[in-house]
């Protein structure tokens, strides 16, 4: 029982990331009709917003180390600590949460620029062209990041307070062995909040209703004299923000490197396909479902029966779903 619960918990935070990326992916596909192979790059860019914020906060200069007395020693000390002492140190400690506030405007701008600068010219082109141009863009983005940040993963730790694990087991009366890292729990709640916000936005605002109507039947909405194009631009920006936030918050779980976007993108496609292309609820459900499935598949007990299943489970599910239920779990005709 403990083991099962642990696997579910482990799957949930990864599933949250899948769900967030897939949500944007399917939103863009549903509204703009574009398959965005650069969507993973947005996730990665979000993660690097964290890195950048951390880098900026820790801009430092050499200061004489007073604790070493028998010779002149210098150490790098961030300006923030020099100026504000412990308060400054705390700000640095909270680099990742702070990044959220930076990521929102930055990702929105990137998203809008991407849509206006490139994607909109491809609405009328063939599927293959859309796939290929966004694929090219993904390569460009990831190579630029690689050129600026190097090829190695960059550690971006969570704030000290939440570094440990939560004793989930003792909360629910299942023994003290069952623990779950605080940050993962935060990530999961964060993902659920963002998902909830996006759904609320789409369901309870006029803007959202128009977008949903557009997803359903673009032509009719266009005929109503509503400028659907402009709304779709904003939708793209929104999707970029969601993917970016997913990346920003994920950094303490997985130190970001330049190709994390591609890795997540391929999986997120599978998530979207499994959930049903164009179905928002499907994307979210499939994201969590596949995250948990993957987590179960990497249990040793499972791997001893089906060797290698953890490596392919997601793809296998995708193949089966595409063949048995081509519209996906929640897709409509």
């Amino acid at each position: 029982m403990d083991a099962i619960l642990i696997q579910i918990l482990n799957g949930l935070d990864k599933g949250g990331a899948y769900a967030l990326i897939a949500l944007g992916l399917t939103l863009v596909f549903g509204t703009l009709g574009v398959v965005n192979f650069a969507h993973g790059a947005l996730f990665m860019l979000g993660a690097f917003v964290s890195v950048t914020v951390q880098n900026i906060l820790t801009i430092s200069r050499k200061v004489k180390d007073e604790s070493i007395t028998f010779f002149d020693a210098y150490k790098e000390t961030p300006y923030l600590e020099i100026w504000w002492g412990d308060t400054g140190a705390m700000i640095i400690d909270y680099a990742v949460p702070i990044s959220i506030f930076v990521a929102i405007p930055v990702m929105l701008l990137i998203g809008l620029a991407m849509e206006r600068g490139l994607i909109r010219f491809f609405y009328k082109r063939e599927d293959a062209d859309q796939i290929l141009v966004t694929f090219g863009l993904a390569i460009v983005i990831q190579e630029i990041v690689k050129a600026n940040y190097g090829a190695n993963p960059i550690p971006t730790p969570a704030p000290e307070v939440v570094a440990g694990s939560a004793p989930v087991g003792s909360w629910v009366g299942l023994g003290a062995d069952l623990v779950y890292p605080w940050w993962r729990m935060i990530y999961l709640s964060f993902a659920l909040t963002v998902i909830g916000a996006v759904f609320a936005f789409l369901h309870y605002t006029t803007f959202g209703m128009v977008v949903r109507a557009g997803m359903h039947d673009r032509e009719t909405v266009g005929l109503l004299g509503i400028n659907i194009e402009r709304r779709f631009t904003i939708v793209f920006g929104l999707a970029a923000v969601v993917a970016g936030l997913a990346g920003t918050m994920y950094t303490p779980i997985l130190p970001p490197d330049y190709h994390m976007g591609m890795d997540f993108l391929v999986l997120s496609f599978v998530v979207v396909v499994v959930g049903g292309m164009g179905s928002l609820a499907g994307a979210v459900a499939a994201g969590f479902l596949l995250g948990i499935l993957q987590s179960f598949a990497s249990m040793n007990e499972v791997k001893s029966i089906f060797p290698g299943i953890d490596q392919i489970i997601i793809y296998l599910v995708a193949v089966v779903v595409l063949l048995v239920r081509p519209r996906g779990l929640m897709g409509k005709d």
Partner: peptide, 26 residues
């Protein structure tokens, strides 16, 4: 059995499976 983007994603899924297996079990 599928066309368009679904075909692209299916082939991609198979290739990733092959790649992952070549690195692990195989």
């Amino acid at each position: 059995k599928r066309t368009g983007i679904y075909f692209a994603i299916l082939t991609l899924a198979f290739a990733q499976m092959g790649y992952n297996l070549a690195y692990s079990v195989l």
